[in-house]
Design a protein around this nucleic acid. Structure first.
Lengths: 120, 120
DNA sequence: TGCGGTACTCACCTGGAGGTAAGTATGGGC
DNA sequence: GCCCATACTTACCTCCAGGTGAGTACCGCA
């Protein structure tokens, strides 16, 4: 979870909530699909361990970014989606995504960057 | 320094370069003042150690975000400033800053957040 | 009977980010 | 002669984010 302040500025507070190896990617994934099951998220994020996925999702839930809907069925079904706060955070990260994309292209053009994952 | 890919998406690449406890704040500081000496940055970032400041500045220089100008004087003078890439990164983080600011205000209104640094 | 799939929890371990404190060369002011 | 300020470097240590692998409860299917 976030430190919950005191923060030096808004960027500080924003970064605090997105810090965590998978959080920005979870945001991106949930924003693209609207609603995703735990297993779908796991398969969509190459390299995540189950432990980390649960952990990051729980923290994001506590931070009010994602909504968790449990369906009491067998086998169990749990669906994750973005809250309004999560959606707006994702929008706020849009510019950073564009910047990163351009950087990747620039580095690739200079032959510095080896490759980009096909998902990009 | 950044991993230099492969990245999953642009946000992934962008986050990679801003990851580091002080980088977004250095960006902010340099953008506000245009040019800052090492000591000014240290005093402007409450809590940084000299080691960390140097380290993060060096990484940002390698990543092409900041420019380092050395004046061979005694006592030594070194001035840091943002490169065009650094400036555009800072702009890309603007939306995140606004989001964070609003979040802080929302949490404060709910009495969850204790306080905000006066620099905010 | 036992294996696979669901969404987890738990215990353990490691690497590296980040912190602490000291050392360095130089000259100016007292 | 000594201390201060500049911008660092170096060695050492701690802590925790993140990874690994196993275990859990339930059911369907073969």
């Amino acid at each position: 979870m976030g430190r919950r302040g005191p923060y030096i500025c808004g960027i500080d507070a924003g970064m605090d909530v997105v810090a965590g190896k998978w959080k920005s990617l979870i945001l991106w994934e949930l924003n693209n699909y609207g609603t995703r099951r735990f297993g779908e998220l796991r398969r969509g994020l190459p390299g995540v361990s189950e432990k980390m996925l649960v952990q990051q999702l729980r923290e994001m839930e506590e931070d009010g970014l994602v909504h968790r809907e449990i369906y009491r069925e067998v086998p169990p079904r749990v669906e994750y989606s973005l809250t309004p706060d999560g959606t707006s955070l994702n929008e706020a990260l849009g510019a950073l995504g564009t910047w990163g994309q351009q950087r990747v292209e620039r580095l690739a053009a200079e032959g510095i960057l080896v490759e980009v994952s096909p998902t990009a």
